[in-house]
């Protein structure tokens, strides 16, 4: 089995991060925006693990576990905010929630 070079892993993780950022900034549905945030963080996790493999070091494994816990907390807060938005706007459409301008 041939090994995949580090560059490929990093490019993949950067692509995931880019997808995540684009999703958060452009998608109108809150749930999809939250999923994009998860993709972003998991892209970073992949970068951590690839670098850990490259360096033959395990510190980053602990980092990834911490990040996963933080990501879970973030989603919890995001869903709670989604409920608050839904109560007022009647939908999870971010454009309809956007009332403040200027």
């Amino acid at each position: 089995m041939t090994s995949v070079p580090l560059t490929a892993w990093i490019l993949l993780s950067l692509a995931l991060v880019a997808i995540g950022i684009a999703g958060v900034l452009t998608r109108r549905n809150l749930l999809i925006a939250l999923m994009s945030l998860e993709i972003l963080l998991n892209g970073v996790n992949l970068a951590f693990l690839s670098f850990a493999r490259f360096h033959g070091d395990t510190t980053a494994h602990a980092a990834v576990l911490v990040v996963m816990a933080v990501a879970a907390a973030e989603v919890a807060v995001g869903l709670a905010l989604g409920i608050a938005i839904f109560r007022h706007a009647g939908s999870l459409d971010l454009d309809r929630a956007n009332r403040m301008k200027g």
């Binding site: 950022i21 958060v24 973030e74 807060v77 905010l81 608050a84 938005i85 403040m100």
Partner: peptide, 15 residues
């Protein structure tokens, strides 16, 4: 506005 403020802060802060 409260929920909207929280959400905007959350999404951009998360990124």
């Amino acid at each position: 506005f409260g929920a909207e403020a929280g959400l905007k802060y959350f999404l951009l802060g998360g990124v």
